[in-house]
Nucleic acid binder design. Structure first.
Lengths: 158, 158
DNA sequence: TGCAATCGAGTTGTGCACAACTCTCTTCTG
DNA sequence: CAGAAGAGAGTTGTGCACAACTCGATTGCA
């Protein structure tokens, strides 16, 4: 049995689907543009900012754990952390307990940057122009969507 | 006057904001993962698929117009089209009316690929696991969000 | 205990996104 | 009509995302 691709509003879901995905792609890039502006004087990119956020909140942790929090693999994270290291914001040291593991921690400069970054979320919040209720619902929908997509991708592996 | 950063549900909006943006980022990448699976035997990446979609729907058009449809600048589009050209799916010719303009059109192979790509939207739709109503609302919210972010980014230029 | 399997980081290669630039062609204006 | 200004495409350089790989450390199990 094949589901109809047109709903009661007369919208073609096949078309709609591509628009959803395209809209998401566009929104993601627009967010990137706003963050680029807001982060300009910190010298951070958005993914670097996310990494710093995680370290500000949780303190030092292994690269592995940071990758889980940010959902990034080492191919992305290693060079990113190298750049943060070069910028003097983080330090990386082998764990004495497990020589495979590298512990990422903040330097003094990295901790100091936190004060400068404090107003960033408010600026971003203002830029969204959405009401809190809408943001909450959007987040809920996105999280469900991410879970569904991840498990779909997994079941498509074969 | 400073707005409260905590709403009536006791959620910290500063935290929420970062979660929204992070959630969006995560969803965008999860979509990427599903498309990677689904597009595997076409040999296309997701942005390449978007470009092909635009050409299947609208026929040949200048690079400029394609960039507007996909919201991509030439720095992204030129090499992407070069790869599609190398793959034999599109052709690029200078416009006879305006030597600055390049017209992108489909080759026979590019047109044939459409049949193979026909079931892709349905697969993606299934992978989202969302009801049509939710998709429609999500699209609406995302479009508003994108507009707000774009105009915010513009006003932050200076 | 010894060795195979696994794990954690890092590297390499490809492609996307974007800023800043060049080059050519067109258009506008004095 | 000439030269300046602008438009359209492409290039260069940086950084992110991800697959596939290497390498050394650890773990597990025969």
């Amino acid at each position: 049995m094949v589901k109809s691709t047109t709903n009661e509003h007369g919208e073609d879901l096949l078309q709609l689907d591509t628009q959803i995905c395209f809209a998401l792609h566009a929104t993601s890039r627009s967010f990137g543009g706003v963050y680029r502006q807001v982060l300009r004087d910190t010298g951070l990119t958005y993914p670097q900012y996310l990494a710093m956020m995680a370290l500000w909140e949780h303190g030092e942790m292994p690269v592995k754990r940071l990758g889980e929090l940010l959902r990034l693999d080492t191919g992305t994270l290693s060079p990113l952390l190298k750049r943060l290291d070069t910028a003097g914001l983080v330090k990386r040291d082998r764990s004495p307990h497990d020589e495979r593991s590298v512990i990422v921690g903040l330097t003094a400069a990295g901790r100091e940057l936190r004060a400068q970054a404090e107003q960033i979320p408010l600026k971003i919040l203002a830029a969204t122009g959405l009401e809190p209720e809408e943001l909450i619902q959007l987040r809920t929908t996105l999280n469900r969507l991410t879970d569904a997509l991840d498990s779909a991708a997994e079941s498509l592996q074969d």
